[in-house]
């Protein structure tokens, strides 16, 4: 088997075409408890990371925004307010259960008018060229098998001048923080996963996939290589997460 045929599934090497299915299983099994786990995992701080992402998106009234791997719709809900009724927000996720939870949640808050839900794989986005002013992917890129393919697919659907924002776990700048973070993600996360979602394997996978994700500089290079301009990143919380931005030339 050549290198090209395998990919990471957490720390396990699996065949590329098997990964999408495995990832889907993980998220099917956690969908119902996802928001709760998200809060527990990050002590609620993911809301702050997302808030900064929205500030940097520059999204305005009338814009078209795509949130890929949108899960239960945190970003989409806020974007829907910002773009107003002349605008358009698409919440896309590969996983039906996550989309369903997102739809139910947004229905509860009465924000559905300008949001569409599309089941889609980030690698093969089912939208015409030059469709969006902004594309976001929050805590989703690490799950995608061929990240490069996904970045190119995003570039295609962005309008010229449109922005990509990638919010993702990254490499803590400080060794102490890095160790603390590993302890947290490898011991505490899976344990909490078992208590809350009754599924420690899924959270073990999450922890491992965070470790396997490219660090800040590598991801920056990947975004540049895919054809984006004005690429930059901001570390947050000491580099536990990073927000990368690129513009379609």
């Amino acid at each position: 088997m050549s290198d090209k045929d395998t990919t990471h599934f957490g720390f396990k090497e699996v065949k590329k075409d098997a990964k999408a299915g495995l990832v889907a299983d993980v998220f099917h099994s956690v969908a119902a408890r996802y928001d709760l786990m998200n809060d527990l995992m990050s002590g609620g701080i993911h809301r702050i990371w997302k808030r900064f992402t929205i500030e940097l998106s520059g999204v305005r009234k009338g814009n078209a925004v795509l949130d890929i791997a949108g899960g239960t719709g945190d970003l989409a809900a806020r974007f829907a307010e910002l773009v107003g009724c002349e605008g358009r927000v698409v919440l896309a996720d590969i996983n039906e259960s996550m989309l369903q939870v997102g739809r139910d949640k947004l229905l509860d808050t009465g924000r559905l008018g300008n949001i569409e839900f599309v089941q889609a794989d980030a690698q093969f986005l089912p939208f015409p060229d030059d469709s969006f002013d902004c594309v976001t992917i929050a805590f989703g890129l690490r799950n995608v098998t061929d990240k490069d393919l996904a970045l190119r697919s995003i570039l295609r659907v962005l309008k010229p001048g449109g922005r990509l924002l990638v919010l993702e776990f990254s490499k803590p700048e400080n060794e102490l923080l890095s160790q603390a973070y590993d302890t947290y993600s490898f011991r505490i996360l899976p344990f909490m996963g078992r208590l809350v979602a009754n599924d420690s394997d899924s959270y073990q996978y999450l922890a491992e996939s965070i470790r396997k994700h490219p660090d800040q500089e590598t991801l920056l290079d990947m975004i540049e290589d895919a054809g984006f301009a004005q690429c930059q990143f901001h570390n947050m919380t000491g580099g536990i997460v990073a927000l990368h931005r690129g513009v379609k030339p």
Binding site: N174, A180, T183, Y184, R187, I188, F191, G238
Partner: peptide, 24 residues
Amino acid sequence: PPRLEVEDFYRDIAELVMRVDRLQ
């Protein structure tokens, strides 16, 4: 801030690890 955060975070983690061990 990053330094303060790191130290707080580290303390919280150490505490949490102990609690998780007990709970486990």
